[in-house]
Simulated scan of single mutants.
Amino acid sequence: MSTAVSSLAQSAAAPATRRGRFRYHRLLFHVTATLVAALFLAPLVWVVLASFRTPAESTQPPIPPWPMEGFSISSYERLENFGQSVLHYSGNSLFVAVGTSALTIVVAILAGYGFSRYRFPLKGFAFVLILSTMMVPFQSILTPLFLLLAKMGLQNTLIGLVLIYSTLQLPFSVFMMRNAFDAVPKEIEEAARMDGVKGVRMLVQVMGPLVLPGVVTVGLFAFLNAWNEFLAALVLLTDQSKFTLPVLMTAVRYGRYGSVDWGAVQAGVTLMMIPCMILFLILQRSYIRGLTAGAVK
């Protein structure tokens, strides 16, 4: 009898013990996640607060901006008065980023669909060759790219910069879109063909909505990389009116007697962060789904 009672007591206490462990692990998870989030957000908050420091403080090294003596937008005014205004250079960056995203999406969709659904000679070799270009450092081919654009008359143009950025994004983008198309059952296409859908309509109306997360991922990657890229824009653009925001940061960085104008730099970085954060927050669900497309297969 005593053995039965003890076993019943142990079985009753087991769920309570499991619930206690679950609550402990959940609390530990939330505390850890909060600390990690604070660790990543701290530099962003630092940059934003430093951009609103007073002129006397903005020329100092970037030490933690607390306590602040006062609130000032002089850093943004200096950034606005440099060259042709920050809106002009933001327009250049937006043109390059949007153009890179659009061109990369179109080419990646066509190439990914072809590698996923069609058979042709040396298909595997061609796909591996495309992926192998990801192992080539961009800096090692910068000089040939500069000479090639000069021969084509596209050096010192935003269109040439779009072509360069799209070329650099295509290997990863083609890989992503092929995986996205592979995750779609072929029976869906067969059913659409029986209904008379074929060609471009098949790709746009039937396959397009199904691979939309992959398209969002490719476009977001291309946009962020083109928006933040610095080296190619610095080398290929010589006309100040065509500078993108990252190049503008180097031009506006130095103040009087070669001192670093930290206020203007932090103001520019703050403005550069805004589109990236907005896009990621809006598209984060599709972005995560696109990264995991085909992983379970």
Rank of each mutant, 00 (worst) to 15 (best):
V197F: 10
Y165P: 00
F22S: 12
F52V: 05
T133P: 07
L39D: 06
L103E: 01
V5T: 03
D239T: 14
Q266D: 14
S58T: 01
V211H: 00
E69N: 07
M207D: 07
N92Q: 06
V162C: 00
I288L: 14
G114S: 12
V36T: 14
G294C: 03
L110N: 06
S72C: 02
V136Y: 08
R256Y: 04
I73N: 12
W227D: 01
F172A: 05
F175I: 03
Q240N: 13
T238R: 05
W262Q: 03
V204M: 14
F40Y: 04
L163K: 03
A111T: 06
A56T: 01
Q10T: 00
I164E: 07
S90K: 08
V269Q: 12
F120S: 10
L94Y: 03
L129M: 05
V200F: 15
L142S: 04
F181C: 13
D195M: 03
T270S: 13
T100S: 01
G290M: 08
S166M: 10
R18W: 05
A111Y: 06
D239A: 03
L283K: 02
Y165M: 09
T250L: 06
V31M: 14
R78D: 13
L49G: 02
E190M: 06
H30S: 07
I278D: 10
L27C: 12
S11Q: 08
A97F: 00
L145S: 14
L148P: 04
V211W: 00
L49D: 01
R119F: 09
T34R: 09
L231K: 01
N81R: 14
A102I: 15
R18A: 13
H30Q: 07
V31G: 09
F223L: 09
A12D: 05
